[in-house]
Nucleic acid binder design. Sequence first.
DNA 1: CAATATACGGAACGTACGCCCCGTTTGCTA
DNA 2: TAGCAAACGGGGCGTACGTTCCGTATATTG
Lengths: 211, 211
Amino acid sequence: MARPDTPAAGAGITVVDGSQTRPLRADARRNRDRVLEAARTAFGAEGSDVSLDEIARRAGVGAGTVYRHFATKEALFEAVVFDRIGELVEEARALSDDPDPGRAFSSFVERLAREGALKRDLVEALAYDGVHLQLGEAPIVRALTDVLAELLRRAQRAGAVRSDISVDDVVALLTGAAYSICHSRADDEQTRRLLAIMYDGLRADRTAEDV
Amino acid sequence: MARPDTPAAGAGITVVDGSQTRPLRADARRNRDRVLEAARTAFGAEGSDVSLDEIARRAGVGAGTVYRHFATKEALFEAVVFDRIGELVEEARALSDDPDPGRAFSSFVERLAREGALKRDLVEALAYDGVHLQLGEAPIVRALTDVLAELLRRAQRAGAVRSDISVDDVVALLTGAAYSICHSRADDEQTRRLLAIMYDGLRADRTAEDV
DNA sequence: CAATATACGGAACGTACGCCCCGTTTGCTA
DNA sequence: TAGCAAACGGGGCGTACGTTCCGTATATTG
């Protein structure tokens, strides 16, 4: 992202929400969806440094239209990332009372890593949190952390995962795994191996005696 | 990096080498060293998107001076990264006939991960290879791969590291670990834990039966 | 110390990008 | 269908950055 020095003094622009005010006009609604979809694709494939003009072009709208729906490029990026995180949270919640906590944890770990490996924006958001963005405070991120913590705690209690690690460790590890997978253009076989290594490390019952 | 569309048609600029032609003038030599040192610090701490003007400023020279020694910003970046890789290769070679192959491998893995965690340029170079840069062909990178392969092979033969992984896997894993460590601003304790997890995964003698 | 090749600094150029403005178009309402 | 608020598009502004140019300064040589 570009870290603009001018903090984008928000003009009276229509913002994300949409409640309270009257519903969007039909074309506005349609264009907003198109922009979001184009942004999902672009940010997912190339990360946050796709230009806004490029996204507008792909969405088939003008740049001004994008700004009518999202106050800044960063707001658009956040909207995309929050969407993705929301989907993940939902999946994680569905797993959180699985009778096999070890399996529940491992399948979500794999899900998250694979999703990150495919969607650069996710990795960027998780990794650069606090540097370019400050999305750490967002409720949806909190929700992800919480549900992941729950999965981890249950897996640890069941003895499936080593007990000396925290949610932050898991997130850091997943971020790194996703990063390396998507940047090394790993094929399916290599992806499988990398995830296996990581997961073996996570469940090791011994504490680390060396390294 | 900025991926300039104009491929910087090299004017008759003094290039890295220095052999064959008469030695640099004293001030030129000094400035070149200053630039390299400033670039090491800047690229190491912030990655390749530090501006060239900023590097020149920190080195106490003008932008023109930088270009007299390095044809493009990318060339400067490469010079810094190659330097670092060269140092690592030297260290790896010193370990390559260690009587304990497992320890030799693990200590180099830790060394590389920690170095990457501290030097963003390294992670970037290793990860983005082929995307922004094409440093994969460089002899020094080849040398790193080779010596790492040797360390890995010996560790595997000694039964210290699982046998189903390749050098590429190790590099990808290390890149990811370094990335997550330096971006999550992990403290020493967390760094230790992440490396422990990774290394436990690497030495697991079982093959991955799940995930 | 004079002469000269070498190197220096920083102003200037071209480009890319985030963001805003405004004349024009379009969906909604009566 | 007429009138209007809402929305559109894309040209334009300011900035940042990579790179080049050139008038000036300095190390080197005899």
